[in-house]
Computed example of a mutant assay.
Amino acid sequence: MTDDTLRTDGGTATFTARLRRNVEQMTIEDAGLYVVLLLAAGFYLVPIESGLVTSIKTGTAIVETAPFAPPGPSGFTLEKWQAAVEALLRGIGNSMLYAVPATVISAFVGSITAYGLTIPDWKQSYKALVLALIIAGIFIPYQAVLVPLTQFWSQWAQLTDLLSFVWALGVPNDYVGIVELVVTHVAYGIPICTLLFRTYYKTMSEEMIESARLDGATLRRVYRRIVFPLSGPMFAVVLIYQFTQIWNDLLFTLVLVSTESSPAAPVVLILAGLGTSLEGQDFALRMAGAFFAALPTLAVYIFFGDEFAEGVAA
């Protein structure tokens, strides 16, 4: 028997012994807690599992099997996934064009705004008034601004002329809607980003900030050298939150882009009509499209997962 086998066997034995000891020490309350957690996990995972198996079923299998039951060998197909990718790939690129810059800009502006409302010394009553006005933007529903939003952008018809150098490169002027979506989501995202960052900055060490200012550091240098580098965990929280909200938003997209046939149509707009026809709903295609459209948000969660957990716990 080799040393590697001994190490493997020893590790397995140690794990088994630890598991047996934990089971023996488990109380009735612990067992009940685990049962509740397993039931909760199943409650949330069953819809996801049902959607996933539906996306790989043929039309006949969808009719003949339960929603959560896997398809048999004759009912398995990946054709719907192929069709979903072909239909949504253009929309994925269009969504990236406004979701990424809008997320980054709103997070950065929210960070600077929160810093100005937390660290610098200025009259508290003025600071509270400005903060209240900014936070009020969080409670304005999307539906309440649709008419003024439409009127605002209709009065900015010259935006198409300002971007004429872009259209000269062969880009369809339909993409002016992408620019409008970026500005709209940045404006709507600044209040919540400011609130999240301000909550985080209030936990920072005042002594560290004061020491830097006593050493002659300006407000700009304090932010650049101290506050910004320490804001990584909260940036992860804000980026994940903002990207998910912007990526999944359909209302502003309907108002500013309008139709899924537009060259600038984002993925949510194309997904809304995917699998819908006079013959009925193609559930497998819709499920495949929904999972494919969710992959970028899942990737963001995975990429910023550790920082997100640190920022939430802060």
Score class of each variant (00 low, 15 high):
Ser211Thr: 15
Leu45Val: 13
Ala187Asn: 08
Thr150Val: 11
Phe291Cys: 05
Pro47Met: 08
Ala84Ile: 06
Tyr115His: 12
Ile192Thr: 11
Leu133Val: 14
Gln124Val: 13
Cys193Trp: 00
Tyr188Ile: 09
Ser125Asp: 14
Thr77Phe: 07
Tyr223Glu: 07
Lys202Ala: 14
Thr77Trp: 08
Ile209Met: 07
Gly72Pro: 08
Pro71Asp: 09
Pro73Thr: 13
Gly51Asn: 08
Arg220Asn: 07
Ala107Val: 07
Leu295Thr: 08
Leu163Pro: 04
Gly177Pro: 00
Val53Tyr: 01
Thr160Glu: 10
Ala236Asp: 02
Leu38Asp: 00
Ser277Thr: 15
Tyr241Met: 13
Asp174His: 10
Phe308His: 02
Thr65Tyr: 10
Leu129Cys: 06
Leu89Lys: 11
Val85Trp: 12
Gly137Cys: 12
Arg90Ile: 11
Leu274Gly: 04
Ala83Glu: 09
Phe235Gln: 01
Ala309Arg: 09
Thr5Trp: 09
Gly275Pro: 05
Gln155Ser: 15
Leu298Ala: 12
Val182Phe: 02
Pro73Ile: 12
Thr65Asp: 14
Thr160Trp: 00
Gly275His: 05
Leu254Gln: 12
Ala87Gly: 04
Pro47Gln: 11
Val222Phe: 03
Ala128Trp: 10
Tyr126Asp: 09
Glu180Phe: 04
Val147Met: 12
Arg198Asp: 05
Met204Ile: 08
Asp282Glu: 13
Gln25Lys: 14
Ala264Asn: 03
Thr276Arg: 14
Thr184Val: 12
Phe43Arg: 10
Val171Phe: 07
Gln151Asn: 12
Ser74Thr: 14
Ala264Gln: 02
Thr259Ser: 15
Asp249His: 00
Leu117Cys: 10
Pro266Gln: 06
Ile178Ser: 00
Tyr200Gly: 03
Gln143Gly: 04
Val109Leu: 11
Thr58Arg: 07
Val300Ile: 13
Tyr201Ser: 05
Phe228Gln: 06
Arg198His: 10
Ala84Tyr: 02
Leu52Met: 15
Leu52Asp: 00
Ala107Phe: 04
Glu207Ile: 09
Glu210Leu: 10
Val227Thr: 06
Ala40Ser: 13
Ala84Lys: 02
Phe291Pro: 00
Leu195Lys: 08
Val222Pro: 01
Phe43Asn: 09
Thr150His: 09
Ile138Gln: 15
Trp156Thr: 04
Thr58Tyr: 07
Pro229His: 04
Ile178Arg: 01
Val183Asn: 04
Glu29Cys: 00
Ala128Leu: 13
Ile302Arg: 06
Pro266Ile: 02
Leu19Ser: 12
Val63Gln: 14
Phe15Ser: 13
Leu78Asp: 04
Val171Arg: 05
Leu33Asp: 09
Gly116Cys: 12
Ile62Leu: 15
Glu79Gly: 13
Ile135Met: 13
Asn173Ala: 14
Ala41Gln: 05
Thr8Met: 12
Ser95Leu: 04
Val182Tyr: 01
Leu88Glu: 01
Phe291Leu: 14
Ala284Lys: 02
Ile209Gly: 04
Phe252Asp: 02
Glu64Ile: 11
Ile56Ala: 05
Val268Asp: 00
Ser258Cys: 00
Val35Lys: 05
